[in-house]
Design a protein around this nucleic acid. Sequence first.
DNA 1: TGTTAGCAATGAGCAATACTCATCAGTCAG
DNA 2: CTGACTGATGAGTATTGCTCATTGCTAACA
Lengths: 308, 308
Amino acid sequence: MQSILELRHLKTLQAIAATGNLTRAAERLFLTQSALSHQLRQLEEHYGLPLLNRKSTPLKLTAAGEKLLGLANMVLPAVAASERDLARLREGEAGSLRIAVECHTCFDWLMPAMDRFRAHWPEVELDIVSGFHADPVQLLFEERADLAIVSEPEDDAALYCQPLFAYDMVALIANDHPLAAKAWLAAEDFRDETLITYPVPDEMLDLLRKVLKPAGINPKRRTTELTVAMLQLVASKRGIAALPRWSVQGYLDKGYVTARPVTQQGLRSELYAAVPATHASHAYMQDFLTLMREVSMENLPGVSLLNP
Amino acid sequence: MQSILELRHLKTLQAIAATGNLTRAAERLFLTQSALSHQLRQLEEHYGLPLLNRKSTPLKLTAAGEKLLGLANMVLPAVAASERDLARLREGEAGSLRIAVECHTCFDWLMPAMDRFRAHWPEVELDIVSGFHADPVQLLFEERADLAIVSEPEDDAALYCQPLFAYDMVALIANDHPLAAKAWLAAEDFRDETLITYPVPDEMLDLLRKVLKPAGINPKRRTTELTVAMLQLVASKRGIAALPRWSVQGYLDKGYVTARPVTQQGLRSELYAAVPATHASHAYMQDFLTLMREVSMENLPGVSLLNP
DNA sequence: TGTTAGCAATGAGCAATACTCATCAGTCAG
DNA sequence: CTGACTGATGAGTATTGCTCATTGCTAACA
């Protein structure tokens, strides 16, 4: 009789539709698989209708489920927008969000996140701090930036550090390169090759810091600023490179070059967002932090969210 | 950080905006005043903003409150519509809803309720059973009607009976009639007057059943089918009538005739909807039952809902 | 000016319920 | 057949949303 539906249920349905899997949907909502299963059963009992087809993998919504999903898709964005409005009412419209990056490839996913953000907070001054800096965190302390994208968690009490996502770095080699025959590359394999990198300090290159330096290997080097140029050099056997899989997936799909894991376990890298603790509570900052996670999940193949 | 907003909160805000009063809003939601107060405080703490201005009576929403109310007004109807869709998915589109009335004046508020219903359930056959019947409940058993509007609760297990609302019956007299000088009319006052009624059996006239019959008073009678005709007769001192206040409020506001309570405590009447128990669970029936209550609250002055 | 009625706020306590945990059953790939 | 991965389920717990009882405030009225 009385409606038992709550926003919680709509969020659940959205997560299930997005992941096609109760377990992963639960993760996304910071709940357990059991919780979602119970929620679902309660809804289905209440409406006397199945909401999803359990037989299929990935999980498919029934017609009734789709109806409610449609509701969720119209209601939840409206709720989010209203909550932003309230935050603006409390904190005012304006503010600044200057982003410092240490990693070239980040632009790929930062751009769509920034676009979405601009629509939410037109009055916030949004910038990427130009030029590359050895230590982007330093820019935060100098108040020349409000947010830094870094590859290791910062352990400073003056900073709030939010995990973004993890991804695999892969070695890129020409399709007919002898190393392409191997299932994965060891540090040794780089010894006699030319390593192609961005023109940044060694400490900012995960391959060098985590794999080659520890093994005492220091290959010949060549640098370029552009990812496409790197791929061009690799394809023409002028050297090998190591890049995030998500930044080159498009080229891999076209068979332009070959990717191989670095070391047997793979080389897993992570990204974190660091913001001055004083800025962390701002609503627009919180919004951007979640936006970055959302956008990267949507757009980048093979990344996994890190628990905040 | 995490959103705590739920549909429950939106319903609360809507009720507060509608009643301008926590206590009455709580009644409408079948909760206590305390519950709403706590809800409100939780929201205000979470958003760091006051949602309503406590100083004013009736309670006024702040800008932030209005924002959320706007959200409620867009979200809640969408939710209700989706739930109707689900009900249709389960039970099918069609059905019949034939309404039997024992009280002439009911048309005033039945019409808008029926209009709203038709929009919700276009495939349900909606009718008022024509002609007047001494016992509309009988029509339910004969399966010639699906819902009856009656003035006393039915005590039959085969029927589901929902209270609708309560209202005051008032005596109508000419402005310069001697009885207009009295604050209220006693049974005695009717003895030498002509009573103007609808042409229905005496048991269906609350004034006769509850006041005059018990006092052993049986005044002269005159009948007419139309409410306006009754008022015309009253105004020209051809007799006095007793009608629901809500059905004549418009004429009273224009000073056309004078209204006086019947007996010192007033003559309070009630309306109930009776439906065959077998039909009561149908979603469209439930929808109509709540629609009748909603519409009468909105349109009829001085009525009060009865607790179901 | 005291008195009462009406209203919202508050804190304590309780009951409903939303969740987790542990486990089971089914499906699929190796 | 086994192990990995899935969702379902029941029991138990932690949370939370609610009610109850009371207080403080305001306004109306004698």
